[in-house]
Design a protein around this nucleic acid. Sequence first.
DNA 1: ATAATTAATTACAATTAGTAACTTAATATC
DNA 2: GATATTAAGTTACTAATTGTAATTAATTAT
Lengths: 112, 112
Amino acid sequence: MMKEFNLCPRFEKAMGLLSTRWVGLILFDLLNGTKRFSEMEADLPISGRLLSDRLKMLEKEGIVERNIYSEFPVRIEYSLSKKGKELEPVIKEIQSWADQHVTHEEVAEKDA
Amino acid sequence: MMKEFNLCPRFEKAMGLLSTRWVGLILFDLLNGTKRFSEMEADLPISGRLLSDRLKMLEKEGIVERNIYSEFPVRIEYSLSKKGKELEPVIKEIQSWADQHVTHEEVAEKDA
DNA sequence: ATAATTAATTACAATTAGTAACTTAATATC
DNA sequence: GATATTAAGTTACTAATTGTAATTAATTAT
């Protein structure tokens, strides 16, 4: 039996996307411009398997666009769609909150 | 060996919090005011085990405050701290994006 | 004491994430 | 044409997290 709940279905859907692990960082990375797979793999603390899963998911959601260039070697570029770029205010607000409230110590203690 | 990456440590920390499953919905719920445990359990599609975990985590992060009232039966209230309330712009931007981009069909297909 | 009520915790099954090796696809070089 | 090279993506496996349901505090009214 399905549990009933009803805060706001649209918010829940959006939050479901954004709270999928690594999606925020992928968006952050792509807001800096088009990237290829291996660049993103280098920028982000994420393995190829999950990066591939997430990009596929974001493409299906219409947030990310994938373009193939038949060069040698093949180049595949990922970028944000209009819908994806419109997440920029969300990312900016998170950045702003982080700048105000995340302390140096909190950042450091990632190791611990 | 630890993988190197360096987009923005503060952003990564904030995004790590916000992308922890259910945290967004918990914040959304608490932005409507103080709630007790059982209310939140009813509002959200989340079980007591995880709600308890998340509230403890958010309290440790200084985002949520917990107050005990020794009545019968005991009443424990959760609310947002200043730091927590300052996440409101983030939640509002997500809501705004959701209103613009999440379609009726996407909301419906939760069942599928 | 006993019952009643809210807030948690525990135990365990199911799902999801992380790691590293492997495969695919395209084309350059011999 | 066979082999090598390079980026992209997948597979197989282990580890961590989540979800569910039952159980345990803790408090106090009766």
